[in-house]
């Protein structure tokens, strides 16, 4: 069963496509730097074709049906791509919604003298495109969420570098909140580096951790224990005065752990533990080096 709208689209496809493109471009917020015209034209034509095929199948209301699969795929691809490229939701929504106006124009021309059919078809197209635009938004948001998840992973990775400060000494500056997921990453990186470099001392610097509550403390204690199991010693540095006071009031016992106020004093302790002596050269020995 072919309905009136699908016949109208089939007959006026080229015109509809052209007017749809025009409507998309009149949206003054559309940034043409993000996509080229050819691409936009291609996507629009692809979408219109799948829309027409779906309509010709006779299904006029359920966008979740099999006939609508190609159009869902096309829309899904377009919205995810737009989310990644940084399009606004408005720009993405306009893409589908502006097709409404072009279809209404074509239907109006065709059924000018038959208001009943015109009314029925307009309602139909309206509902269908509303459903499709909701679908577009959903996929757009999913695309954005994927971007956020990927960024979270990246942040986790870049924010936990393990630095070889000296033969046998590793330093690990921790910046931000130390939640369970971060602790896992920190611990893995650290243990891996201890093995890879054969280091015997690791300095965990928490200057960049905003608050140490019992959960963070527990995570630190776990990391220290794991380091010890690997045969290395762990020093925690960067405990600011206000954090020290808070830890004491909370009742957390860090007495089994070597702690230092600054990274510099932790490094000094590490040198001591390794029997390394660092001292200023006097003038004469400097010159003799040259």
């Amino acid at each position: 069963m072919k309905n009136a709208t699908s016949k109208v689209i089939r007959k006026n496809k080229a015109q509809i496509l052209e007017s749809w493109m025009k409507y998309q471009l009149t949206d003054e917020d559309l940034r043409d730097d993000l996509m080229n015209m050819e691409e936009l034209h291609g996507q629009s034509e692809q979408l219109l074709d799948s829309f027409l095929n779906a309509l010709e199948s006779g299904n006029m209301n359920d966008i979740n049906a099999r006939e609508f699969e190609p159009i869902r795929d096309t829309l899904g691809e377009i919205s995810v791509m737009r989310a990644r490229r940084g399009y606004s939701p408005r720009e993405t929504g306009t893409f589908v919604l502006s097709l409404k106006q072009s279809l209404f124009d074509a239907l109006e021309k065709e059924f000018k003298s038959q208001p009943e059919i015109l009314y029925k078809e307009i309602i139909l197209v309206n509902n269908l495109l509303d459903s499709l635009s909701i679908f577009t938004f959903e996929t757009f948001i999913k695309g954005r969420e994927e971007v956020i998840l990927r960024q979270t992973d990246e942040i986790n990775e870049i924010s936990t570098p393990v630095i070889r400060v000296w033969e046998g000494i590793l330093a690990l500056p921790i910046i931000g909140t130390l939640d369970s997921a971060r602790t896992q990453i920190v611990m893995e990186n650290l243990l891996q580096e201890i093995v890879a470099t054969g280091s015997s001392i690791a300095i965990l610097d928490i200057s960049g951790v905003p608050a140490v509550d019992s959960l963070v403390a527990q995570h630190l204690i776990k990391t220290v224990s794991a380091t010890r199991l690997m045969g290395a010693e762990c020093i925690i540095s960067g405990i600011r005065a206000e954090i020290a006071q808070t830890i004491v009031h909370l009742g957390i016992d860090l007495s089994n752990i070597k702690t230092k106020a600054s990274l510099a004093s932790a490094l000094r302790l590490a040198y001591d533990m390794m029997g390394v002596e660092v001292k200023k050269m006097d003038r004469r020995s400097k010159i003799s080096l040259l």
Partner: peptide
């Protein structure tokens, strides 16, 4: 003050957890 802020924030953190 910074010390009091840190105390309050840590306490709040414990309770939300």
């Amino acid at each position: 003050s910074l010390v009091n802020q840190t105390k309050l924030i840590t306490a709040a953190s414990e309770l939300v957890r």
